[in-house]
Design a protein around this nucleic acid. Structure first.
Lengths: 367, 367
DNA sequence: TGCCAATATTGTACCGGTAAACTCGATCAT
DNA sequence: ATGATCGAGTTTACCGGTACAATATTGGCA
């Protein structure tokens, strides 16, 4: 008799007559509906070992009520007590539209998300429209909506880094040109990669290799240039400064520089074009074809990045593949470790790249 | 004398000796440091009209303390009381990597984010890896970390939509093939767009237009096909079913179908290729060139979407531009309206597209 | 002198959860 | 018989903020 009167005082489906605000179903509602206390519900639905402590009967009662009322726990309330949102933020320094020019970022995001998911963390992505404006973006990063950040950007205002450091928010810099040594970071080894690529070209017998580099302010650009130089030094081949430029990573640069270079007298013109990135290479290839040069019979050409279009070029572009996915994974692991251990490291990871040999490099013409 | 002893009992810079957990600076800390109550701090830092009620002196004192202690309000705690996170979630149905194949999504994101920012809302982006798995993703959407959602996907499991509806989470479907009528949605007018494009081609005098469409399960594909048909009907030109296929929106489909079509006898082969999307058109164009057909002198060709590569084709691809940015803006506005008014509409917005006439359409050869 | 309004500030009760200690009856070993 | 242990929940006190009502303090004015 006494055991029969469960759900005694619950009023039934309340249609929420508080006109204005929307009321969510809370633990308390479920508790009332099931005729138990809040804690009981919390522990049972919270899952894990906690729910073993309750009788089968109670457990079912609670689970039923939760289902009936369509209860969803509030991540916000949970985060408040647990001091943990179980969410990692990824910050992009660009608008999404310009992601199009930086396709590898997507691979990076996928890698990071996969690791987060595997470790039970959610991922959210922000873009810092007003990147330079620390006032605007930093609060967003420090307000507890994420437990840590993966910051993807070649350049970050030192103010922002300082704020993050001050706020003791765990974070990892990815693809940063010159990361703050106090922060964890993940980068690639531009110099070694370019050195290997240029060596590969030199070994085909070329001696006049043009270099269409990025802006000299950019660390990655100078590193790549250093790789170009080292490869030449290694094989004792002199560099002709006239063949070296540093006008940025753009399709149009490939176009204009190639026009300039190929207008040089036959015996001075380069027989190979080392482009700072694939987009430049694509621009260069287009001009080469227009001018009637065959690739690689007349002129060899290389890129850097391995964007999707690189494989579609005919012949396929010989280039360097960046380990995007692996960078994302490394960053996520590095971050989650910091979060779990509650200690900030300045560890710097530098990942190796991979040479992708396709069809745009061959021996120089006449050999 | 009495006014002089402010900050009486505050202990100074506490180095947080609670070993384990990280303690954030809270309102209480600032209050103690400034020698006022929590409420005073909350109201002053909360800004707006509230802070006028306090004396200049108190205000400065509080602001100073906040700055010294590097106080950042907890978005989580604020959200709990305000019942509002001031954050809009954008859900992508794909991995980021495949964003590369869908460049227009980026424009969409930018448009939505711009509106959100202008209306004082933050934006966060999720991807639903396990899209079909409602169990996994729905909790994330209903747990209060966002105030509403913009769901970008051609197809959404009806379970998910139902859950969202049940949870009374405001949301807008974007780019959805066949949106639930109870939900707000933003789409484009595929049929009208394709009709205009095909009419444009027919008006050049073509009579054999191949159609390389998407899968017939997809609403957008059937709509585009309907546009193709209507244009023919309007100009009283019969359709040859042999020239129509529906093998999906892929580069490779463009390649293989074009090979098939152009192998037909001269007087049966199409003089124009209407491709379901730009990628297909790019594949088709490549084959056409390989086979020695000139565009548009021998064969005309059209795309759909206006991806960046479309403009780089030589000659530039005649295609249809989707109003990506505007879609994002519309979606965001629709969503924020729902959030503000706390009422869910099933309003459906259908946005017009724009014809982009470049160089791949001309009169059929022989005319 | 005393009362009211305006000014400046504080106390209290939540928001929706969770950790940890506590209750209460039943079972168990001694 | 008797305290100890155990099973099955419940109570209390927060987490870090905000809304609202309550409380000093001051000055003006009849």
């Amino acid at each position: 008799m006494t055991t029969e009167n469960s759900n005694p005082s619950y009023a039934g489906d309340l249609p929420d007559r508080s006109l204005g605000r929307k009321r969510n179903v809370t633990l308390k509602d479920v508790a009332a509906h099931a005729g138990v206390s809040k804690m009981t519900v919390s522990m049972i639905l919270g899952g894990g070992s906690q729910s073993d402590r309750f009788s089968q009967e109670t457990r079912l009662k609670v689970q039923n009520s939760a289902r009936m009322l369509k209860y969803h726990p509030s991540a916000v309330a949970q985060a408040l007590t647990r001091r943990r949102m179980n969410t990692v933020g990824i910050v992009l320094s660009q608008q999404f539209t310009s992601l199009l020019d930086d396709p590898y970022i997507c691979g990076l995001l996928d890698g990071a998300m996969a690791v987060n998911a595997a470790r039970g963390q959610n991922t959210t992505v922000f873009t810092a429209h007003v990147w330079h404006d620390a006032e605007r973006s930093v609060p967003l990063f420090c307000d507890g909506r994420t437990d840590g950040l993966i910051m993807i950007s070649p350049a970050i205002d030192s103010d922002v880094v300082q704020s993050l450091l001050d706020a003791e928010v765990p974070f990892v810099l990815v693809h940063n040109e010159d990361p703050d040594p106090r922060a964890a970071s993940v980068s690639i080894d531009n110099k070694t990669a370019m050195k290997a690529l240029v060596t590969h070209v030199l070994e085909h017998g070329h001696t006049r290799l043009a270099f269409l580099g990025g802006f000299p302010q950019s660390r990655s650009a100078t590193d790549r240039y250093a790789g170009y130089c080292e490869a030449h030094a290694l094989l004792h081949i002199p560099i002709n400064p006239q063949l070296v430029s540093s006008l940025g990573y753009h399709y149009d640069v490939g176009v204009s520089e190639t026009r300039r270079l190929m207008a040089m007298p036959r015996e001075a013109a380069p027989t190979a074009l080392i482009c700072g990135c694939d987009k430049t290479a694509l621009g260069a290839a287009k001009v080469l074809k227009e001018l009637g040069f065959r690739i690689p019979q007349d002129v060899s050409i290389t890129g850097f990045d391995d964007i999707p279009d690189a494989a579609l070029l005919a012949p396929g572009l010989t280039t360097v593949r960046l380990p995007m996915k692996q960078m994302g994974e490394t960053a996520a692991n590095l971050l989650l470790e910091q979060i779990d251990r509650q200690e900030w490291t300045g560890r710097r990871e530098i990942l190796p790249t991979e040479l992708v040999l396709r069809g745009t490099v061959g021996p120089p013409s006449g050999k």
